[in-house]
Nucleic acid binder design. Structure first.
Lengths: 242, 242
DNA sequence: AAGTGGTCTAGACCACTGA
DNA sequence: CAGTGGTCTAGACCACTTT
């Protein structure tokens, strides 16, 4: 059976957060060299592969740069909200961690049966109850993303209503023990005036779309999320290796 | 499998290719379970972490699906050219490996000094010699991508001319020992009629742009590539983990 | 030469699946 | 229950950078 107590995040992700915080706090300035992987392993009481995995995450996010034989260095970064594509984080958290004031505005929230196409995403039958959400994200009062979410209501405990959800979906799911641990994402470019809404929508309806299904630790699909990031407001980085 | 070759690719990448080939050959059909990680490790003479790393690459590409406790399964795939974003492969190879006939058409090839902005990408000075290339990729006679490349001519051996380059840039660089091992990529959405050219350009000028700098094993930046993938012709997949 | 990151191994222990 | 994948460790050896 599933053990609800043992859903701590993996060590590399925890360590990456601690290192990210130290950099954000100015503990290590841009250009500065971090302690060696060996030293970090000792300091945090983990193995060197775990340190390497944590560092790799921050390299993906564009925060660190590694130079073979020389060391690991803090990069200085440019415009846009930095986001590593490979790390699964809630949109609001990505925005907030960059020092912006993040606000989430809901346009609609509705419990309804899923269409055949929608149900297929959850490997479920048509008519499966889902909570459909439309919302947008603001960073310092500027619209930076729109998001369409479909939450599989079958995995939610009884008595949860669509109106209970506000702000971050991740923060809503976490106390229920339903935090997604993995997402299978597709990347698309979208040019569609029907996506944006509200008075502050961007002039040009051009978006990077992350179409992703979120999975729980037990493999169940918990949500289907289509996030539309306003082009130029985000800086999506990615490390590709041979 | 001890690895006697000096500049061989990492074992996980080699193993991923061998598994990919076996799947392409129909050795394992969609839906079928692969041998366990332990068995694959024995069969190929590598450790289990190496097998896991290889499998992770194929999961990123959408070719495999892993079910905890049950096994690793071959997925059946849909439309578009499948490409895992995290794996660095040449555009022509991605297309060819999906069974399409890949053709590369060059529009221009030119040796010239880099502008200030361009040189910055290479951490070089303005005036740095670069080879600028414009080309497009066809899969089964259909245009699927346009690409602008800038190759740092300072890393090329003397006597190499812009006209020597044809087909895949990777295949041109490999025998020179200048194969990139890593790319730092930015993902953007682009809607611009100035990108496409030629009689077969797509009706709608909407692209997923991979803006990437390629690095050699010694850390030198060797090329700056802006690849514009025609929306809907590619299926870029990505696994995001917590 | 010393110290750094790059790669890979062997193996331990856990959680999950399916018979 | 046996077998599978999920996670993490300890350490070996190599290539590279710096002194």
């Amino acid at each position: 059976m599933t053990n609800p107590l043992r859903d701590a995040r993996p060590l590399p992700a925890q360590l990456a957060d601690r290192l990210r915080d130290r950099i954000a706090d100015g503990d290590w300035e841009p250009g500065h060299r971090l302690p060696s992987e060996q030293e970090l392993a000792l300091e945090y009481g983990v193995s060197r592969p775990t340190v390497r995995s944590a560092v790799a995450r921050l390299v993906d996010s564009g925060i660190l740069r590694v130079r073979h034989g020389a060391g690991t260095f803090v990069t200085s970064h440019h415009g846009g909200i930095q986001a590593g594509l490979q790390e699964l984080r809630s949109t609001s958290r990505i925005i907030a961690e960059q020092g912006y004031n993040c606000e989430v505005v809901y346009r609609s929230r509705e419990l309804r049966p899923a269409s055949a196409e929608e149900a297929e995403r959850f490997a479920g039958l048509p008519g499966l109850p889902v909570i459909a959400i439309e919302r947008c994200f603001l960073a310092d009062d500027e619209v930076v993303a729109f998001e369409h979410d479909l939450i599989n209501a079958a995995v939610l405990p009884d008595g949860v209503a669509a109106e209970d959800i506000s702000g971050s979906v991740f923060e809503f799911m976490e106390p229920l023990g339903l935090l997604p641990v993995q997402a299978l994402a597709h990347v698309r470019a979208v040019y569609d005036a029907a996506i944006g809404w509200g008075p502050r929508r961007p002039e040009q309806p051009l978006y990077v779309c992350l179409d992703q299904v979120h999975y729980l630790a037990d493999g169940r699909a918990v949500s289907w999320s289509q996030a539309f990031f306003v082009e130029d407001k985000f800086e999506f980085t990615l490390v590709r290796t041979r």
